[in-house]
């Protein structure tokens, strides 16, 4: 069976700055994979390359065996690659209801219906309700997104990525900036993601990484520094030095 996601020699430079350096990474189907690295290591850039926000300078990206390197961002989503953003990217003037509905109907292929009113497809409605309940957004569905509490906005980030029904889900620091008291809600939502979806989690909180992941990749200065099981990475003195050590200093 082909890996869920695979990159081969992925490379990106911004002018003279190498943000992603020859990264070859494999995500097995249903994997729980964490991507860690110091600030500015190039983790978000890597996700942007995978999802088509940025075009790689070199290298290839395979999703379930198919080459998607040149494909547009929305096609990748349709093929089953979804993501969340480190900094909220939401539709401020729409409601969570509309936002989730957009993702669902786009996936079901009814997103370009121009004659039918919104909200007249039972299949879409049913799924919106299920997703809202799964992510604890049931009460907030009809608020304007910009006015939601930050924690709810973070949940909505994950909910819309989930609504794309991905085979591979990329979570870029899902709990970033969320107050301690509300973190558990987001972590629970992440932990409860379906087992058959491969998840790549970017996260700075090492306790969380160790409890969530079964494989960890360490990115330093854009390059893949280490790649191994949780135990291997936890034991690796070099990783401790560049990453864990740094955290201890902070």
């Amino acid at each position: 069976m082909a890996p869920a996601l695979r990159t081969i020699g992925l490379h990106k430079n911004f002018g003279g700055l190498v943000a992603t350096a020859d990264v070859s990474l494999t995500l097995e189907p249903g994997a729980r994979h964490a991507l860690i690295g110091p600030n500015g290591a190039g983790k978000t850039t890597f996700v942007n390359l995978l999802t088509g926000v940025l075009t790689p300078s070199a290298g290839r990206i395979l999703l379930e065996g198919a080459d998607i390197t040149g494909e547009s961002a929305h096609r990748r989503v349709r093929r089953g690659l979804a993501r969340t953003f480190q900094i909220n990217q939401l539709f401020r003037d729409l409601t969570p209801l509309e936002t989730i509905g957009l993702a669902v109907s786009e996936r079901q292929g009814t997103g370009r219906d121009w004659w039918r009113r919104v909200g007249t497809k039972g299949a879409v409605i049913g799924e919106i309700v299920a997703i809202a309940e799964r992510f604890g957004l049931g009460d907030a569905l009809e608020e304007r997104t910009a006015t939601l509490p930050y924690g709810k906005q973070r949940l909505l980030e994950i909910a819309i990525a989930f609504a794309c029904r991905p085979r591979v889900l990329l979570l870029d620091e899902p709990a970033a900036g969320v107050p301690e008291a509300e973190r558990h809600e987001i972590l629970a939502a992440v932990a409860a993601l379906p087992r058959d979806v491969a998840v790549l989690l970017i996260e700075h909180d090492m306790d969380l990484v160790f409890s969530f992941a079964d494989r960890i990749s360490v990115l330093v200065n854009g390059a893949l520094f280490r790649d191994g099981t949780v135990e291997e990475i936890a034991r690796d003195p070099a990783v401790r030095a560049v990453y864990l050590g740094e955290e201890a200093d902070a």
Binding site: T51, G52, V53, S72, A73, H74, V77, R78, A82, R83, F85, Q89, L90, F91, R92, D93, L94, E98, T99, G101, L102, A103, S105, E106, R107, T110, G111, R112, D113, W114, W115, R116, R117, V118, I160, A161, A163, C164
Partner: peptide
């Protein structure tokens, strides 16, 4: 009719945030 359709809603989404719009498959 058009602005109240799924197509019309997707336009509002693009207006609000084209980056996210593409990321939900629009």
């Amino acid at each position: 009719r058009i602005v109240h359709s799924p197509f019309g809603l997707s336009l509002c989404a693009i207006r609000d945030n084209p980056l996210r719009a593409a990321a939900v498959g629009i």
